[in-house]
């Protein structure tokens, strides 16, 4: 586990060195913050995704992208109805939490394969966002608009707010997973749910909580993304689940569960961010981005398999 983390950080360093040799502009502070801001949304939503996957049982959350969109739409809609910033944040996150609870209940109580309910919720959340926006971007954000936009577009010193947000989420996620009973339960359940159950760990509850966290975190991240774009749009976040899952898997979060860490996920998100930025800087057409991300996922999963086989022998 630790050795894979070291490897992914080494790979990240390697890519950074290669990219900065190819395009020296890459290392300018402005560009670096731009890169960080772009992958901050992936990393933040990725923490929830990693928690779901680590919880095992084939756990995966395909709905994160749509839930990001829904969170942003709910928040901007409520802002337009003249609600204050805090209730807006609370209700937006609650919408994501409800999506996560739906996923979690269908997986743990109805015993559905996680792919199915989270795919369903992907569609439902996107549909609800469309119903709320009626297909038009929501850009009249009421009296709390300046505060809301500052949330996504502002800075702490030289650091863009989304990067600060990501740092906080990653730090809290890391602390929860490595230092709290919930984190220990999560790794146990992901490693062997039968053994965990016999030892008195409430497997169902742990997994349900994982999906709830993923939903809530995706919505919060989507709200921040809407604030950064100063608009609520149902299409925001669409397809983002691919990047998020890629970040987790590249970062060493095994799809078999029980394996991987938030720090690894962070490196995976950074790697994706740097690769995307490198393609922009070197003039690779944007259409190639999805091809590269898709290929990276497949390579990462192959590496994961290889790692498991090596660990067995």
């Amino acid at each position: 586990m630790q050795s894979y983390e070291a490897a992914i950080y080494a790979a990240l360093l390697l890519v950074v060195v290669a990219v900065s040799i190819a395009t020296p502009r890459f290392l300018s502070p402005d560009n670096l913050f731009e890169v960080a801001r772009n992958f901050s949304f992936i990393a933040a939503a990725g923490v929830g995704e990693a928690i779901v996957i680590i919880g095992g049982g084939g756990g995966i959350d395909l709905s994160v992208g749509s839930v990001m969109g829904l969170g942003g739409v709910v928040a901007t809609k409520l802002l337009g109805m003249n609600l204050g910033l805090l209730p807006v944040l609370g209700l937006g996150v609650a919408a994501g939490w409800a999506c996560g609870a739906t996923n979690g209940l269908l997986v743990t109580k109805a015993k559905m394969t996680p792919l199915i309910p989270t795919l369903g919720v992907l569609s439902i959340a996107h549909g609800l966002a469309l119903v709320i926006t009626q297909g038009y971007p929501l850009s009249s954000l009421g009296p709390a608009s300046p505060a809301f936009i500052a949330l996504g577009a502002g800075y702490v010193g030289p650091v863009p707010n989304p990067v600060v947000y990501m740092a906080l989420v990653v730090l809290v996620g890391w602390a929860v997973l490595t230092h709290t009973p919930f984190g220990y339960d999560l790794y146990s359940v992901g490693g062997n749910d039968e053994a965990s159950h016999l030892s008195g760990i409430r497997v169902t509850r742990v997994r349900l909580a994982a999906y709830m966290i993923s939903g809530a975190l995706a919505a919060l991240t989507g709200i921040l993304l809407a604030a950064r774009l100063s608009v609520g749009d149902a299409t925001t976040g669409q397809g983002e689940e691919l990047n998020v899952i890629a970040a987790a898997v590249i970062g060493g979060v095994s799809l078999l569960g029980g394996q991987g860490s938030v720090l690894g996920l962070f490196a995976g998100a950074a790697l994706i961010g740097v690769l995307l930025n490198a393609m922009v800087l070197t003039g690779v057409p944007a259409f190639w981005q999805e091809v590269v991300i898709g290929s990276t996922i497949i390579v990462a999963v192959l590496l994961d398999r290889l790692r498991i086989r090596l660990a067995r022998d």
Binding site: Y187, S188, G258
Partner: peptide
């Protein structure tokens, strides 16, 4: 009924 991904101490204190 052990968790292979956890260490010895964690397996002894599984869930406690």
């Amino acid at each position: 009924a052990l968790c292979n991904n956890l260490d010895i101490a964690q397996n002894i204190f599984l869930g406690r």
